[in-house]
Design a protein around this nucleic acid. Sequence first.
DNA 1: TTGAAATTGATAAGCTATCTCAAGATGATA
DNA 2: TATCATCTTGAGATAGCTTATCAATTTCAA
Lengths: 143, 143
Amino acid sequence: MSKTLKEMEVLRQHLAKHQLKLTRQRELILTAFLRQEHVTAETMYHQLAKKDPHLGLATIYRTLNLFCEAGIAQARHFGTQTQYDNISHKGHHDHLICTGCGTIVEFENCEIERLQEEVATKNGFVIQTHRLELYGLCARCRH
Amino acid sequence: MSKTLKEMEVLRQHLAKHQLKLTRQRELILTAFLRQEHVTAETMYHQLAKKDPHLGLATIYRTLNLFCEAGIAQARHFGTQTQYDNISHKGHHDHLICTGCGTIVEFENCEIERLQEEVATKNGFVIQTHRLELYGLCARCRH
DNA sequence: TTGAAATTGATAAGCTATCTCAAGATGATA
DNA sequence: TATCATCTTGAGATAGCTTATCAATTTCAA
């Protein structure tokens, strides 16, 4: 089973559970979404304009938000825009962001996650989600 | 030397270095800003309307951004709004945010910071700053 | 005190994201 | 596979937050 098919199945189940429908647009957007790591609604809008000139920006937003609810994507406020990340095929991931060239490197660190749980518990919180972003200069930009 | 005076001095030096001027508005906004942990421009606008009914919203935004450049404040995009945090009198701090009531609890964890450095180094990055936000439900909101 | 330069206030403009609603598509059911 | 209640879409309007504009005012070095 290909990756795309797997996620299509996740979407299908989410739709079924909430009495929503699988549309041509949702399939199109999901397929394109899975081909990249980080996108904004605007980016996808321009990308998909070639395949479907009538696809509306509102539909892109609605669909990406739907993906978030289905657990396929995660929204992240970066600067003034919202980026949508693909999280279906891997666990939660955090980001290293180069302030020089904008490169984004993903990472996962169980130890950090464990310490986060510890801090939360100590303060009476139960964590639902989190966001960790490290900003700095990558090797290339330091030279 | 009081806390406020210390930060006023930080501002003064930043202004001098960049050929900017110390105005009545900047003093007023700094004083009010230092009295709280987290504010939005809108919040300060309403708070200060009592003291100076003609203080413009644009001035608040400009001034808070100035504080960021001076190292007194740090901007944080939370939902659709930008929150400005006072960071001059303490080290960097992270946040526990209740998704139920919006309460924000600050924390610091050296061990997490150390692991962040480790991750960055492993990827060839040198960290300039970071942002860690844990979202969840506080004790009260779980009941 | 003077005057070049920075700042302010008020409002317009810009951006991103969501809402509205008529027209169209979907899919459970018979 | 035909029906039809329900969901979705597209296009533009709208909302919410932040920045840009610019004439009038204030600051501060000389």
